[in-house]
Computed example of a mutant assay.
Amino acid sequence: MAEAVLLSLTDYIDQCRARVDAVLSATLPRHSPVSPRLLEAMDYSLFNGGKRIRPILVYASCRAVGGSMEQADPAASAVEFIHAYSLVHDDLPAMDNDDLRRGKPTCHRAYDEATAILVGDTLQSLAFDVLSNPDLHSQSHLAESVRLKLVRSLSRASGLEGMAGGQAMDQHATGQVLDRQQLELMHSHKTGALIRASVHMGALSGGCHEQEILDALEYYAQAIGLAFQVQDDILDVISDTVTLGKHQGADIALDKPTYVSLMGLDQAKSYAQELHNRAVGALSEFGEEADFLRQIADYIVRRSY
């Protein structure tokens, strides 16, 4: 752990990205006698330059409670499988109908709609396979009871009570005027649920069972989950397509309610900073082992894409 303290956040992010990419690559099948095209499309969607924020949060949260990166590998890869699946489905014509994702054609554009649907389905199933199968990444040495808690946490964050429910609310909110409470309800599910699960799963993987610690991490995750979405809404206005890797102004074009449309640009920026401060405050009882979590909160509100 002492060596990790010497790392800058940039170095730590690079280390986490390289590690989770290796774990994802080891989990993804090498060959498929059933559908090589589906496997190719899965690889295309998974390794297309993502920021890997959620796996990084898993690793950082695990570290904050005294755990190792090996313990966090299953949760880190599982949450990224779910995130990748959600983006593939989110880009579909029936949803946001996006042509670009991370500067490349979206999955349904590079392949076709049916393949994109199946890519999402298969990535989702892999997430729960990697959590429940002790033969995958056995170096994590997770107890069966911990694996069950991880499955429960991720399934809740992915379904009606989390990401899928928020996405459904988002679809029906197009063209509507939402107040701040409604907007936060939507994004606490659509974006925030998987971020909260990432932090929670990291702590569980590290062997944390103390409710007070889990509650503090939950409050931290709630704040950065909302901050992440606020910053996304800000970037949709002030950034450009090349930097974002997707069409700038897409939310405006789709007439979606955003924090900027509700609060104005300056107030949205102030709110992102307020959420950052809440997140850092939630970690006041943690020592230097939580420094990367603190720095990630700063990164989330200062990122440019």
Rank of each mutant, 00 (worst) to 15 (best):
L214K: 02
L226D: 13
Q211K: 15
D91G: 10
Q124T: 07
K256R: 14
L24F: 05
D96V: 02
Q211F: 05
G50K: 01
N97W: 07
L150W: 02
H89Q: 06
I252E: 12
Y299D: 14
N97T: 04
R109P: 06
V199Q: 12
T243L: 03
E184D: 15
D112A: 09
K104F: 14
Q171F: 08
Y85I: 04
R63L: 10
V280F: 03
Q124A: 05
S270D: 15
K51H: 02
A26Q: 01
C16M: 06
A297Q: 08
G120P: 04
D251Y: 04
A268E: 05
Q124K: 05
S205V: 12
A253G: 06
L275G: 13
S261E: 05
E210L: 01
K269I: 09
A203D: 04
D215K: 15
V237P: 08
L183P: 11
D236Y: 04
S132T: 11
D255C: 09
K246Q: 15
R294M: 01
Q167W: 03
L100G: 12
H141T: 11
R109N: 09
S45R: 00
A253S: 09
P29D: 13
G245C: 09
V58F: 01
V301E: 10
Q171K: 10
V199N: 13
Y111S: 12
E144W: 02
I234Q: 06
A282R: 08
Q139G: 13
A297V: 02
L46P: 08
I53R: 08
H172A: 15
L283G: 13
M263N: 14
A197R: 05
F81Q: 00
S153N: 09
S61A: 15
D91I: 01
L154Q: 10
Y85G: 06
E40W: 03
T191S: 15
I224F: 01
A297C: 03
A64D: 12
Q171I: 08
Q15W: 09
D170S: 11
G202N: 04
K269G: 11
D96K: 03
S125A: 13
L283S: 12
F228Q: 03
R63Y: 04
G50N: 10
Y299H: 13
A116I: 00
Y299L: 11
Y59S: 11
F128E: 12
A75S: 14
I252S: 11
R196H: 06
C107A: 12
H209K: 14
A64E: 12
A60D: 00
S284T: 14
H89K: 09
P55T: 08
E218G: 12
L262P: 10
S205G: 13
T191E: 11
L150M: 10
A41D: 08
L46I: 04
E80I: 02
G159P: 02
E212H: 15
V146T: 15
Q71F: 02
T27I: 00
A94W: 04
C107E: 12
G120S: 03
E161S: 12
E289A: 11
G206C: 10
Q267L: 06
L142I: 07
S145C: 11
Q181E: 15
D215W: 00
L262T: 13
S77D: 01
E218K: 15
S132C: 09
T258E: 02
I213Y: 14
G245V: 04
A268L: 03
G50P: 08
A110L: 08
T258L: 00
M201Y: 12
F286L: 09
G103C: 09
R303D: 07
L265F: 01
R152G: 13
